[in-house]
Design a protein around this nucleic acid. Structure first.
Length: 535
RNA sequence: GCCCACGUAGCUCAGUCGGAUAGAGCGGGGACCUCCUAAGUCCUAGGCCGUCGGUUCGAUUCCGGCCGUGGGCACCA
């Protein structure tokens, strides 16, 4: 809104001084420092050379002169600053528009976009083997994938979330043998599954049940229940067995063969992934006749491409070596390898009271995701895993997270939503029910505390767009913290109802906190965290 | 050795296509509840943005080298 107006004004000014600049290349940003105005542009610095000017400040001067002679709406003044920035200083009225916009669009649509419309993205994440409970290491990818899906929907994409079930092969057989052994009270096979959960599952299993089928169903149930606790839901649970049963693997193999990238050597069938930058060629069919893991997975990705325009895979850092060969296979099948986006999440380490705990040990000494949720609660778990970029390895201190303090970042934000609800209730109880927005005198909102809340709200729309484009939900949690900080500051200094607060100011502030509530709720929804009304 | 990511305050991390005096929480020092939740607010100390070059009006940001950390280099899944 205001951004478009200012961009237009800049484009007009450039034309007026006889310079051709592509309007799409005009940058506007929010300066870090207040004295640099409300909005700022670097057009003069970026274009003084091609425009044939002697220096950036001189060019900026021409632009500001024109703008000051033709002030856009809400603009108080346009100034040259620093090396040649064009700074816009606005009247507070532009922030009242932000409030109006937040309230009129509401929490479900505030900050949303439509630029993804017409494109179908498939997001596959977690995809843990259906033979043991999810462990803490799955948590980051789970809440990340789910939040990325929420973000993509928020900017207009059609999104399918998917969980790939590796439900056939040696691992499943070993799992069934281990479960059966536990049922009989025997030792589990050497290379089988030794986790304690199998003792519990064996106890649950009816005597006449088939260990493979029963165990598979039990594991699936476990995955779904655990994920539901942190509000993670998948639209499609895709079975590798169904892929094989449908003959999709031979179909994919035939297509690969047609591409000329398949050959036989040493009794095995190979794919020439080195043709697409891989270190070495990869085996598709082993000498013993079985497929490698790769082969059905290629068929799976081929299937996904038949159902969506773009694919996003969320993989742990330990799988990054797998990216090249999958992209190579997709390219051989005629798909655009860039339409397969593999996002690698760096690993998480957990500690309790300063002592690192293992969470993916082979012998069953892992921390399950359920344990983490029991310990810190679903909201703290979700929020915390989303406070950092997926590119950095994360240290999570479970004991700190379980506390009600600033070391638990979700509380700071939720405390704001709880306070807002409390304020509204108290105001109503004191006879100050909120009237219509149109009747509120927003111009009574003049303190820095009040305006700062609106300034933070004004950035949300851009933040959502960036977070979605960069697949970066942590930008939402960072923003939420900023908004909560602005609100808590307002709360400390500005009473909604009280001595010396006029009825008009009370009304305006009731609408201000409503706008803040919409922002907080809207952002929390994007990261799948609740906005409690009391704490 | 090769591939991927990372290196920002004592600790944990942000930093919007390169921008003007690099931010937050914890921890350290101090202040604030006879009106709406102190799970809060305010002040203060603390930085060679790993390092050396390059690109340019301008580099924490982009590129290359080096050092360091984590992960990966299967006819396992």
């Amino acid at each position: 809104m205001i951004r478009d107006q200012l961009t237009e004004a800049l484009a007009g000014a450039l034309t007026a001084v006889g310079v051709e600049v592509d309007a799409g290349s005009i940058e506007l940003e929010r300066p870090a420092r207040r004295e640099h105005g409300d909005w700022s542009s670097n057009v003069a610095m970026a274009n003084w050379k091609p425009a044939g000017r002697s220096n950036p400040r001189a060019f900026a001067g021409e632009i500001t002169d024109h703008l000051n002679a033709n002030l856009p709406a809400h603009v108080e003044a346009v100034e040259i600053a620093g090396p040649g920035f064009v700074n816009f200083r606005l009247f507070d009225t532009w922030l009242y528009d932000v409030l109006n916009d937040a309230v009129s669009t509401g929490e479900d649509t505030f900050g949303r976009h439509a630029f993804g419309s017409g494109t179908h993205i498939n997001v596959e994440f977690v995809s843990a083997n259906p033979n043991k409970p999810l462990h803490a290491g799955h948590a980051r990818g789970a809440v990340y994938g789910d939040s990325v899906a929420r973000l993509l929907k928020a900017v207009g994409y059609q999104v399918t979330t998917e969980f790939y079930l590796n439900d056939r092969g040696v691992q499943m057989s070993l799992f069934a043998e281990s479960l059966a052994a536990r049922k009989r009270g025997d030792d589990v096979p050497e290379n089988g599954y030794h986790g304690e959960y199998l003792i519990d599952w064996a106890a649950e299993m009816p005597d006449d049940a088939d260990p493979l089928e029963w165990g598979y169903a039990r594991a699936l149930q476990s995955h779904k229940e655990t994920l539901a606790r942190v509000s993670v839901h998948h639209d499609v649970w895709f079975s590798e067995r169904s892929l094989v049963a449908d003959g999709q693997v031979p179909n994919a193999l035939a297509e690969l063969q047609a591409s000329g990238m398949v050959y036989e050597a040493d009794g095995a069938t190979w794919l020439k992934t080195t043709e697409a930058g891989d270190d070495k060629d990869r085996v598709l069919i082993k000498a013993d006749g079985d497929y490698t893991y790769l082969t059905p997975d290629i068929a799976y990705h081929r299937d996904k491409f038949s159902r969506a325009d773009r694919l996003i895979n969320v993989w742990g850092a330990d799988h990054h070596g797998y990216i090249r060969r999958m992209k190579a296979a997709m390219a051989f099948l005629g798909n655009d390898p860039d339409a397969l986006e593999v996002i690698v999440t760096q690993l998480v380490s957990l500690e309790r009271d300063g002592v690192e705990v293992q969470m993916s040990g082979r012998l069953g000494d892992m921390v399950s995701l359920d344990e983490v949720i029991d310990e810190v609660g679903p909201d703290a778990a979700r929020y915390t895993f989303l406070t950092q970029s997926m590119d950095t390895k994360q240290k999570v201190n479970l004991s700190a997270l379980a506390t009600k303090s600033m070391e638990n970042p979700v509380h700071y934000v939720q405390y704001a939503t709880a306070r807002i609800d409390s304020l509204a209730k108290n105001a109503a109880a004191a006879g100050h029910a909120r009237g219509p927005l149109a009747a509120a005198e927003l111009a009574t909102l003049t303190t820095e505390r009040e305006l700062e809340v609106l300034r933070v709200l004004s950035t949300f729309s851009d933040i959502v767009a960036i977070a979605a484009r960069e697949r970066a939900p942590h930008k939402i949690t960072t923003w939420l913290r900023e908004l909560a900080a602005a609100f808590h500051g307002f709360y400390a200094d500005c009473y909604v109802v009280g001595d010396g607060v006029s009825p008009e100011l009370t009304q305006a502030r009731l609408w201000l906190i409503e706008a803040a509530r919409i922002g907080l709720t809207s952002g929390l929804t994007l990261v799948g965290v609740s906005a409690p009304q009391e704490m």
